[in-house]
């Protein structure tokens, strides 16, 4: 009596396959209800079948079935064409057939591309494990990113998670945008938004990839995911420093915070890298590069958007009064005083 049940399961599978098409991203609320109805069938099927199929399996199976059908239909069609054209139409028919085949292929390729792009949305499940965190975990990791661990004999644990890093990068983008606006930065051939996003994501992805490449060369035990997570959480210190110093313009405050918070987050990353590398030279190479890049990045972000100070200095020295009046509108009192008092130090830093 197992065969009818299996047939029923297959029927359920097929119908649920067609049902899963309803869960398109722009499905309205009603469609979700339909999906709810379909899930009952799948549950039944799960009881019967031990393959442990889930929605993704359904989708895949459905997709494969459809593709197979298409291929079969295509083959049949071409066979028919060959038979017909070869017998009745001769050379002219062959040309037409060739054209049709090319057009068909182009059409198929286009359709495959489109369906792949569409399936990207369904493939969001692939990324889901990296976002599997609790708020408490994120908070703890943020705090830990400022606490260097001195244990370097045994590989330190690095969480492979992307929620925190991604949010920190977006926070940094927002802070940078704020800094650009308040300092009156003008970017030709581009927007502030694009520059901020490009800088932050470029640093995060680029430096991660570079350090990962170096780590691969010196045989360090770290994966790309861990590298992304480590560097991403390492941006927490710079975020705080920039948030404070874009609003309070004391240079000594910046240097203090730069050394303290920037240094702590850098030390934390360096310690984690040290514990996963063996040998003196590899350690020096990897950690030196990492520390240099991370500290310089913070310095760059701070001073690149203080160009206004330089402009102000020029206008104070020269007789060009118009730019100063235009610029001085947005400058807080503190910057003016700090600039006037120690121009020598500023000159040396730029």
């Amino acid at each position: 009596d197992s065969t009818p049940r299996r047939a029923a399961a297959a029927a359920g599978k097929m119908s649920s396959g067609s049902g899963s098409r309803n869960t398109e991203p722009w499905g309205s609320f009603d469609d979700n209800l339909i999906q709810g109805g379909g899930s009952a069938v799948i549950d039944m099927e799960n009881m019967d079948d031990t393959s442990g199929s889930s929605f993704e399996d359904m989708g895949e199976m459905h997709q494969r079935m459809k593709e197979e059908e298409e291929v079969a239909a295509e083959a049949a069609a071409t066979e028919d064409d060959v038979a017909d054209d070869g017998e009745f139409l001769g050379m002219k028919g062959l040309k037409g057939q060739l054209g049709r085949q090319v057009a068909d292929e182009v059409w198929q390729a286009g359709k495959r591309q489109a369906s792949k792009a569409f399936n990207l949305y369904a493939n969001i499940d692939i990324l889901r494990p990296y976002f599997d965190v609790e708020p408490v975990q994120v908070r703890n990791r943020l705090i830990e990113s400022l606490i260097p661990v001195r244990m370097i004999n045994f590989p330190q644990k690095i969480a492979g998670e992307l929620y925190g890093p991604l949010m920190l990068v977006f926070t940094l983008v927002a802070i940078l945008l704020h800094g650009m606006k308040t300092s009156g930065t003008v970017i030709r051939e581009g927007t502030l938004m694009g520059t901020a996003i490009g800088t932050c994501f470029g640093y995060w992805l680029g430096v991660s990839a570079f350090i990962y490449f170096l780590a691969y060369l010196v045989n360090a035990q770290i994966t790309m995911l861990q590298m992304l997570s480590l560097l991403g959480y390492g941006l927490f210190g710079p975020c705080i420093v920039l948030l404070v110093t874009y609003n309070i313009h004391f240079h000594f405050l910046f240097y203090g915070l730069w050394l303290l918070l920037g240094g702590l987050s850098t030390l934390r990353m360096v310690a984690a890298l040290l514990s996963r590398t063996v040998g003196q030279t590899p350690r020096l190479l990897l950690c030196g590069t990492m520390a240099l890049l991370h500290m310089l990045f913070l310095l760059y972000l701070h001073f690149n958007y203080h160009t206004i100070v330089e402009g102000l200095l020029d206008s104070l020295e020269g007789h060009n009064m118009a730019p100063m009046q235009r610029v001085a509108r947005d400058v807080p009192e503190v910057t003016l005083n700090a600039t006037a008092r120690n121009p020598g130090m500023l000159l040396s830093t730029h």
């Binding site: 991203p25 722009w26 979700n32 969001i124 976002f131 938004m193």
Partner: peptide, 27 residues
């Protein structure tokens, strides 16, 4: 810039909520 912030931002938030296991559709 405003246009990009509004639409890009909402798309990011939506993707984030999907990744965290939300049951809301994209649009």
């Amino acid at each position: 810039e405003v246009f990009v912030i509004v639409w890009f931002g909402s798309i990011i938030i939506t993707l984030n909520s999907k990744l965290l296991g939300g049951t809301i559709s994209f649009f």
